[in-house]
Computed example of a mutant assay.
Amino acid sequence: MKTKKHRAFLKWAGGKYSLAETINKNLPKADQLVEPFVGAGSVFLNTDFDSYILNDINPDLISLYQFIQNKPAELIKATKVLFCSSNNQENQYYLLREEFNTTQDPWTRAVLFLYLNRHGYNGLCRYSSKGRFNVPFGRYKRPYFPEEEMWYFSEKSKSATFTCLPFEDIFKQARKGQVIYCDPPYFPLSQSASFTSYAKAGFNFESQSKLANLAKKTASETGVPVLLSNHDTPDVRKLYTGAKVKSFEVKRTISRNGAKRTRVKEVLALFSPIDLNEKVIRPSPNNESPRTKTVL
């Protein structure tokens, strides 16, 4: 019997719903899944680990998840009333967006974050350098209210711990029994395709390099395997040297013209402690006794 797939309640650029089965098949077995870049949570929703650590650098996202974990009925009630025809107007969208940008109340921001996500353009989550949410109005005929998906997320989140930390801090906590899956902002296919303003601070080449090095070091030194997603580019391949890399095509999901959406190549790269620290017994020359050689 085929397992039912579960959609995230948030729209998300680069979401992993369509790749959830592929990612699941490539995740090594473990007791706990750790996601330093949880995003909309499609991998979390479609895996079956005993427990989860779900992290993201975006405090609005993590705050929303904590509210739906602890107060699902109240959150669903408060957000549902915003999904009406009078709020699906351009002027009203920008008024509510401004309210989101000016309030510091966590509850109000969580409620409005979901409204903006479902009414904004293409599910983007983007902030200016000053931390202001700046996604334009999406012009949808009737935005979908994801009540069923929210209830499922809330129920499954009982096994999750949500954190809002830099990814470096999550790697520092790595321990046996975990597997780490990383879905960072992708390496750009071109300068014009770069999209790294998911949080106030971007995700540049230095960040990509630091993540790759941490993944390799964590697998080698702590024995915790690390699986990463990214675009399949020469730079990414170089950064992921030492990992088992699988390449495949996916359909581009951010485009102004749906008819012109093309397929691009992505990779799943697994840094495994077995591969990085493999010991091979080889016969020595001149009939000497065998010696152990570490292959990196």
Rank of each mutant, 00 (worst) to 15 (best):
C164R: 02
C164A: 06
L165F: 02
P166L: 01
K172H: 08
Q173W: 07
A174I: 01
V179F: 02
C182V: 10
D183Y: 06
P184S: 12
F187T: 12
S190F: 05
Q191G: 13
Q191L: 10
S192P: 01
F195C: 04
Y198P: 03
K200V: 14
N204T: 06
N204D: 15
N204W: 10
E206G: 15
Q208A: 10
S209P: 12
K210P: 03
A212F: 08
N213L: 15
L214A: 06
L214K: 01
L214R: 06
E221R: 15
T222G: 05
N230T: 09
D232W: 06
D232F: 11
D232T: 04
P234H: 05
P234E: 05
P234V: 09
K238P: 06
Y240D: 02
T241R: 13
G242F: 03
K246I: 13
E249W: 11
E249V: 10
I254S: 09
K260D: 09
R263H: 11
A269P: 02
A269M: 07
L270Q: 00
P273I: 03
D275I: 11
L276S: 03
E278V: 15
E278H: 15
S284I: 11
P285H: 13
P285Q: 14
P285F: 14
N287Y: 14
S289E: 14
